[in-house]
Design a protein around this nucleic acid. Structure first.
Lengths: 339, 339
DNA sequence: AATCTCGTGGCAACCGTTTGCCATCATTTG
DNA sequence: CAAATGATGGCAAACGGTTGCCACGAGATT
């Protein structure tokens, strides 16, 4: 029925209460700055008129947009769902909006987007950045940044301690009698991938086990085919896989080839994403506190936006623990067939 | 090294080229309005200085924020991944930013958020709105809206034609010799849920099959337990389930109870979400073009934002076809045990 | 040759809010 | 009782663009 009405502004409130616009502004944003009496009158009027502050105008002077970008390298990767959920919750609770950006696995898109939007953002959370270290530092000087699973000097970060979990996984496999392990590598330039591989080697060494690596593979389901084939060729009896997505892809291929899991081959994934518990067989995996990672990242970012960077009060890096969740994709090492 | 530099403004460019700021503005936004020569000079300077227009300031006068909100009822529901991906792609291509909002399945949050942000948005896409029809119409008057899977007079929408797919599913089950069908119902107030149930009844009637309904259940994995138990009680031989998430939940419970799928019970899901192909057994399901739905929704919204609502040139409702993807959760009806 | 057009660019107001500075008045202090 | 102090509110200038209106000059028209 009614025309699209012009939104209520502070001027309308000022007119309604007979004070200046500046007083309205202060009453609404700096509670102590005006007398309690007038503040109440103004607040009443604001409620009455159903006033909603204009974010754009606010941002223009204050420089704060109340918006945080969350960058993921691929929105369809279930690993990020948890993160997105976590950041979303925390941001919403703090009154911030979440701008979701898919960097399409491209460092260029990542920089471009961040650079172009920097005036519209108060900060950004980088889940799995593909950026080289130098570019990341540079960017961090332009806009407040928190990375997830990426450790760069001078940039706050939340690290998921998968390496430590890897040790648990290797222990688990060792106790099942496996001697010959494979690490199925993810993308070469992925930071967590390298960390996992290093952890795997040290853990294997500690238990006196042999460990090799195949790959690199993309951390996606389709790559599972090639990965599975590669692993089968090695004749190893157990493997730890870069992430669950890849592991699930492998599962399909192995079923196709008639390789029994865990009868012939035990598999450990990483992350415990959606699906890891209902694939077949359910995946033994390193459960990562993904949602928490998102929430913590937001907390770090926001605390920095509030206090003007108290040098050390803000912790630079937070490490979140992981643990091994044993399901059905791991089992005793097969008795070697007499050759 | 360098201080956080003040961003380049239109005035800087004006100063650099010796023209007025207004001319710069026009050169950059209304190409025909200035002479080619000056425009080129200005563009060169803009490139040179690495000028990035300030979105907030632009929005203030123009009223356009180049931002579209995408509302989902639960970010962690894999059904929305596809939609989010689709909208994201399309929006990015058109130079819009995507603001992701989780309505937490609450009509109240939905209205609140939309209302509060309406000044910061050019429009919104509602994937699975929980809003009553009236509220939706009202909201549509406030801010350009496109709904997905929700048909309300006067509101543009993208409909996924699952009902038609249901007919295919019933046909499939009929051909496998099933006579006694169950529809496992989703949330009561869900629009698509009702549509699916209606389609199921007419399809069953057409084939002379018996069909009942159990539920309502939440469209989530945990609800699968109760749903599975309910279905087993009915002694039906086949069921169509509101969505894949619920179906996958049922699968787990059925395995636990020793009910074989499809040996004892055939199951058809809806949506073909991530995971439907690798659960156990892989789910026969109605494949919905989810990503496309997101893209189409964006296209509809943007075309309306451009042309000032050419009454009919903009189609009001677009229907997207679905098809049945047969995997391994459906099979021949069991031979009834002699009682 | 005088006028009409049109293309081009500048001026200045405006979008809604924030904020530095000043004026006012009441209260406290010496 | 005069002066200093502090609390409170108004004025006006930003913030970075956009846009209506006007002015100027060149080419076209009569």
């Amino acid at each position: 029925m009614q025309e699209r009405t012009r939104p209520v502004t502070i001027n309308d409130i000022a007119a309604a209460t007979g004070v200046a616009a500046s007083t309205v502004s202060r009453a609404l944003t700096k509670p102590g700055r005006v007398s309690a009496a007038t503040r109440e009158r103004i607040e009443a009027a604001a409620r009455e008129l159903n006033y909603i502050p204009n974010t754009q105008a606010r941002a223009l002077t204050s420089g704060h947009t109340q918006t945080i970008a969350v960058l993921v390298s691929d929105v369809t990767n279930p690993f990020y769902f948890g993160i997105i959920r976590g950041t979303h919750q925390a941001l919403k609770a703090a009154g911030y909006a979440q701008l979701l950006i898919d960097s399409e696995d491209s460092a260029e898109v990542e920089t471009q987007m961040l650079h172009r939007m920097r005036q519209s953002l108060d900060g950004a959370i980088l889940a799995a950045s593909r950026l080289p270290e130098r570019a990341l530092s540079l960017l961090a000087a332009e806009i407040p940044l928190v990375t997830i699973n990426r450790n760069v000097r001078g940039v706050q970060s939340v690290m998921i301690d998968t390496p430590n979990g890897i040790a648990q996984a290797v222990e688990h496999l060792a106790s099942l009698g496996h001697h010959d392990l494979i690490y199925v590598s993810g993308p070469e330039r992925s930071w967590p991938n390298e960390a996992r591989w290093r952890a795997m080697r040290t853990a294997a060494a500690k238990h006196g086990l042999q460990v090799r690596r195949v790959g690199p593979f993309a951390g996606s389901r389709p790559s599972g085919t090639a990965a599975a084939d590669a692993v089968v060729n090695t004749r190893a009896t157990a493997c730890v896989v870069f992430n669950d997505l890849l592991a699930i892809g492998m599962l399909s291929r192995l079923a196709e080839r008639g390789v029994r899991v865990p009868g012939d081959l035990s598999i450990v994934g990483c992350d415990d994403i959606f699906g890891a518990d209902f694939c077949h067989p359910p995946l033994t995996t390193l459960t990562a506190p993904i949602g928490q990672a998102g929430r913590v990242a937001v907390a770090m970012l926001l605390s920095r936006l509030k206090g003007p960077t108290p040098p050390d009060a803000v912790r630079r890096t937070v490490v979140l623990p992981t643990h091994l969740t044993v399901r059905e994709s791991t089992g005793p090492a097969p008795i070697p067939a007499p050759s």
